[in-house]
Amino acid sequence: MTPETLTLGVLAVLGLLSMIATYLAVIERDMLKAILFSAIQSTSYAFIYYLLMAPDIVLVYVPVAIGLYPAIILFLIKKTERFESEE
């Protein structure tokens, strides 16, 4: 087993994980849980960028997608309602 095969397999697993997390974040009614699913997706994307040898993109992507984006959405949720209403 060569390192390239292993890296490609890990990329496949991470893509599947981020897809599941995105689907759950879209169908979730609780906004706080949706933010956390989005954080899982951001973490797996950061790992994908790292495996593709782009550390400069990771250095920008991690503060924006794990740090600032959930903070801004949390402030918004604090001002409005947490649960999405049923029509």
Binding site: Y50, M53, P55, L59, V62, I66
Partner: peptide, 8 residues
């Protein structure tokens, strides 16, 4: 690639 860990 190492300083990424601190930021994370």
């Amino acid at each position: 690639l190492t300083p990424v860990a601190i930021v994370l």
